[in-house]
Design a protein around this nucleic acid. Structure first.
Length: 465
RNA sequence: GACAGGGUGGCCGAGUGGUCCAAGGCACUGGUCUGCAAAACCAGUAUUCGCGGGUUCGAAUCCCGUCCCUGUCUCCA
């Protein structure tokens, strides 16, 4: 069975056939680091992290390139506002982004290149485009000549003739549709944001960096290009035009993920309807629960954010976690084993994580039943398959990523001994049928954040609320 | 206006021609277990898929119309 992926360019689900057997090259449009990341960015990161893990599991050697766009109009505007160099703003936000990836268990990219580190590659590309008659210099600017590329619109379905052109004619453009590859310096912009170029001092246009970096790290043609639905046009359309006009084969599959909405609109810094990971943590959610929330719906479905929905996701995840922890308590460490067939089928079906999770929950139900029946063999099987499936989604509760803070390892035996003391008293009370006293012990522990549950083999405790 | 994608139970969310009187989760109800709980398990909870037509032996799934929602429209606010 092979992976099938939705390809935006053909608007269809296609078998994934890598350019080179056993290898997969992915370019993901990362973030423009104009400000700190919000949970909309997290969705992108998590969706592609799942794709990547699935490809790795499927035996591919994955080269995963996720860029940082560290220069653009907004970064410069923020820098001017703050009175600091643009790269200071960009780098500070890049660090925040990295922290967010770590917190959510997003695997580090193979390489995370920055736009400003690839100016020479841009020059080569731009010169190639000029030579081929698809770009022209005008003053100190260089524009891509959209009319010279008749496949323009192939990705988004936009027809150049039908497009509304923007207000205000830019200087030197032959057509309002043309877009800048290189922008000449302006007196109103920070003077430390420019590079010398064959066309005079200036800085990159918005789209050229991705063409340059994908070329640098993945070659002229690569397997998958990803990004949010909102940058399909113009950004990806322009990327295709540039790269193909330069003679590259470019991306073979275009995978776009849907957005995270809040209040009926996409979460966006400019609209101001943003929530970041810290805000969710402040609501009592753990990053792993947030990851579950983002990974559970299909990647091409819009998520309308709501507090209720995240909380519901947290409850669902706790059910998963509860099984894994309880099963491990009775079975000992059972390593991840073989995936369920339904899970595999679901993942291969355009990464249908929703369906895949349904099979996880079913396995858990069977596992819980097996535990209750003391059918250890069946329980062991369920645990190993559940852990394997969760591992693909980056949600295995036993993975080091999700272990509580380090001190926890030392604290736990100590708390365990104290709780055992309290439970001895409770047991004594129960033995003499003094239930009010027994319940008082349980209630007091609960107030301290320790939940006591009775099992056929004695009480167990967990932290919780 | 153009282009793209959606509208499924109380909620979240899969399902794109028959096995769907619609997966899974949450919530709720009843049961088992328990001293009582909790957890877990079992059972129940949409004859129905925005609305109106049509195609078909058969439609949530295809077609037409209609209403509503989201994204995008280029040196992006």
């Amino acid at each position: 069975m092979t992976l099938r992926l939705h390809d935006t360019a053909t608007r269809s689900v296609r078998d994934f056939v890598p350019r080179e057997p056993g290898k997969a090259g992915i370019y993901l449009c990362g973030v423009t680091v104009q400000s700190g990341p919000h949970i909309g960015h997290m969705r992108s990161a998590i969706n592609y992290d799942v794709l990547r893990r699935w490809l790795i599991h499927s035996g591919y050697e994955v080269r995963f390139v996720r860029n940082i766009t560290d220069i653009d109009d907004k970064v410069l505007a923020k820098a001017q506002e703050a009175g600091v160099p643009f790269w200071q703003i960009a780098y500070a936000n890049e660090l925040l982004l990295g922290r967010m990836y770590d917190a959510l268990g997003v695997l580090p990219a193979t390489v995370e290149p920055r736009a400003t580190g690839h100016i020479p590659e841009m020059f080569t590309l731009i010169e190639q485009l000029i030579e081929r008659g698809h770009a022209y210099a005008a003053g100190g600017d260089v524009y891509f000549d959209v009319r010279s590329w008749d496949r323009y619109g192939e990705l988004s379905g936009q027809r150049p003739d039908a497009m509304q052109s923007s207000e205000g004619e830019a200087r030197g453009k032959r057509s309002p549709l043309d877009f800048a590859l290189w922008k000449s310096e302006k007196p109103t912009e920070p003077q430390d944001a420019y590079w010398p170029s064959p066309w005079g001092r200036g800085r990159p246009g918005w789209h050229i960096e991705c063409s340059a970096m994908s070329w640098r790290y993945l070659g002229e043609e690569f397997d998958i290009h990803g990004g949010g639905l909102d940058i399909q046009f113009p950004h990806h359309e322009n990327e295709i035009a540039q790269s193909k006009a330069a003679g590259f084969g470019f991306a073979r599959y275009w995978v776009h993920h849907a957005l995270l909405n809040l209040g009926g609109e996409k979460m966006s810094k400019s609209i101001g309807n943003v929530i970041d990971l810290d805000a969710l943590v402040a609501k009592g959610l753990r990053p792993v629960e947030v990851r579950y929330y983002m990974a559970a719906p299909h990647y091409r479905s819009t998520i309308e954010y709501s507090d209720d929905a995240v909380r519901e996701a947290a409850v669902a995840y706790k059910r998963i976690e509860g099984f894994v922890l309880r099963a491990t308590e009775t079975l000992g460490d059972v390593p991840p084993g073989v995936l369920g067939a339904e899970f595999v089928a679901a993942m291969n079906d355009d990464l249908n994580t929703s369906r895949a999770l349904a099979s996880v929950h079913e396995a858990i139900r069977h596992g819980n039943a097996a535990l209750a029946d003391r059918n250890l063999k069946a329980a062991r099987g369920a645990l190993s398959t559940v852990r394997a499936m969760l591992d693909i989604l980056g949600l295995d509760p036993l993975h080091e990523q999700w272990r509580e803070a380090k001190g926890d390892d030392l604290l736990r035996p100590a708390v365990d001994a104290l709780v055992a003391l309290a439970l001895e008293q409770r047991n004594a009370a129960r033995a003499r049928k003094d239930y009010p006293a027994a319940d008082a012990v349980r209630d007091q522990l609960k107030q301290a954040g320790i939940i006591v549950e009775d099992t056929p083999h004695g009480p167990r405790w967990t932290l919780g609320s």
